[in-house]
Nucleic acid binder design. Structure first.
Lengths: 196, 196
DNA sequence: CTTTACAAACCAAGCGCTTGCTTGGTAGCT
DNA sequence: AGCTACCAAGCAAGCGCTTGGTTTGTAAAG
């Protein structure tokens, strides 16, 4: 009865199905308002059985974040590799992060941004380490563009503005509207390098 | 013992002090992880006494949001009134929202964005009505600029990108760094109308 | 083929604790 | 006298998690 459609990059094991269901619920109601009984019901098992797969509720949240960061870091790497010029690489990065944010890993991405503080401090540090690898990919490309004179502002700040623009999209972007991910990506790229 | 410094636009009544303390805690730990006992302790009263001022914990959250929206809506109005040209009005709007977001109402603003779903649906609708007045001020100015040819993109989408850029700032902007609110505002305005 | 062995996956029940909120009463100011 | 502001105590419900046992799938041993 569950039918919470899976998140890209998460397998179909009992554990994987648990993660997808949890991500969906965390996104809908938030981590704190989601009970282990909710998650269990979503995959059709008893609440206690969850702890055969995860040793705590927090561990589920961490696992969701870890999977989504790892998966999307690889996606960013591919995006850079697929670009011939820094500008093309930037466009690919924006498209990749947009796809992650409003597309196939949407739920998990929203959870990662919004439920960060629900992790204990040690787990936050762990996740931050993964996150920094991810961010470095962005900073490399933006740094190259900046040195090439494509924009004047500080690359660090430019990245933060981009994070904001892209990170907010789940709150308004709808896949079935006329604006496509590609068009939105172009629009955002223009905010960095100016319009043609 | 409390010394949670007040939020701009909230008075110093017992109720007001409760609101400031609550906003501070909600920002720090989130609504769900903040107990009424936490809030009570922050202002130095017993937990049960809170319900002399508010009929539920959710009501406290709603009051925080209502106050901050009303206060900052007035601030936006002033920002528009103080601008002679649409461009100047935009710059004033960005400065105003930045001040609200990383300045004197920072805590309450972060709470409003992040704890939205903790409101019941009726209360969400109520808050949304206030929020729409706020947004309309932005859309008016952006619409005027767009018609004047200052930028090409859809004003609605431009506003959403701005919401993202500005709304993310509490996560990185620090008042005591070299980048001032005014400089950051200029930088963001440039993302809309292009650099000089 | 059947039997035995074993681990992974799960159930049924419930424990201990925290939570938002209630109740009935009191202190102090006007 | 009456109002606002508060206290002290505690209740009912819901929470994460534990426990001890049962089912199910798999594969080697007889």
């Amino acid at each position: 009865m569950p039918d919470t459609h899976a998140i890209h990059g998460i397998d179909n094991s009992p554990r994987g199905r648990l993660l997808s269901a949890a991500a969906h619920l965390f996104r809908d109601k938030g981590f704190d308002r989601t009970t282990v009984r909710d998650i269990a019901a979503a995959v059709g098992i008893q609440s206690g059985s969850i702890f055969h797969h995860f040793k705590s509720k927090e561990d589920i949240l961490f696992a969701v974040m870890e999977e989504v960061i790892r998966f999307n870091t690889e996606r960013l790497r591919q995006a850079v590799a697929d670009g011939q010029t820094p500008l093309e690489q930037l466009r690919n990065l924006v498209r990749a992060e947009l796809t992650a944010t409003v597309g196939d890993t949407r739920e998990a991405m929203v959870v990662m941004v919004g439920e960060w503080r629900c992790l204990s401090e040690p787990k936050q540090k762990e996740a931050l380490a993964l996150r920094e690898i991810y961010e470095q990919i962005w900073l490399d490309v933006l740094g190259r563009l900046h040195r090439a004179g494509a924009f004047h502002a500080d690359p660090f700040i430019m990245r933060r503005l981009l994070t904001g623009m892209i990170g907010w999209t789940p709150n308004w972007f709808s896949t079935n509207r006329r604006l496509s991910v590609e068009d939105l990506a172009d629009l955002i790229v223009d905010r960095v390098v100016g319009e043609a």
